[in-house]
Structures are given as C-alpha cells and as structure tokens.
C-alpha cells in the first residue's frame, strides 16, 4: 500500500486517495477490528454527501438514509460521527468543536 498522508488530526490529507482498504486501516487504528455492513452503510452516506456537497452530512441524514438509530452510530464509531465516521470515510476534518 502507498504511504498514506494524514494531517495533524489524523484525517487524510488528500481525500481523493481514499479506498476501502484505507477505511479499514483507519478503522483499525481507532480500535474497530471489522467494518460491518452497518459501518459501510454509514461510510457510504458520508462519502456520497462529501462528493455531492463537499462536506460531511448532518447526523440526521446519516440516520435517515441508513435507518440506523442515533445511538447506534455512536456505538459503531466510538469517536463519534466526525472524528470517528468521517475520518474512516476519508473526509477532511469538519470545522467546529469536533
């Protein structure tokens, strides 16, 4: 695998080089051993939103499109939707207190 470059916060410097294998690697670093179907559903919604709108989706959008409960998202990604899910999905760090 090519050497991945991360910013100071551990987010991919170049979101374009994201692949599913990269996602798995980041997830492992966060203590998530396996990416389940539910993880992938969340990741796919985040990537789709990023590609279309250039930013992370609202947690509302993630829940609506995956049919997951809010609390499930926090269990799937213990670091939360931003530092957890968005990072695994290869996005740059969202702005704000996250």
């Amino acid at each position: 695998m090519t050497q991945l470059e991360f910013d100071g916060d551990g987010f991919l410097t170049n979101p374009d080089i994201w692949t599913e294998a990269v996602a798995l690697e980041i997830a492992k670093a966060d203590g998530i051993e396996n990416l389940t179907e539910q993880h992938w559903a969340v990741i796919n919604v985040i990537r789709k939103n990023y590609i279309e709108k250039g930013m992370a989706p609202m947690i509302r959008t993630i829940c609506k499109e995956t049919n997951l409960k809010l609390k499930d998202i926090y269990v799937l990604f213990p670091l939360g939707p931003a530092r957890g899910a968005c990072r695994v999905a290869g996005l740059p760090k969202p702005d704000g207190c996250v």
Binding site: M58, G80, V98
Partner: peptide, 11 residues
Amino acid sequence: LNPREPKFFPL
C-alpha cells in the same frame, strides 16, 4: 446551541 449539536450530537 453549539453547532456541533445539530450537526453531529443532537441528544
């Protein structure tokens, strides 16, 4: 609110 609430943590 802090915008992180509606965006990611609405509980």
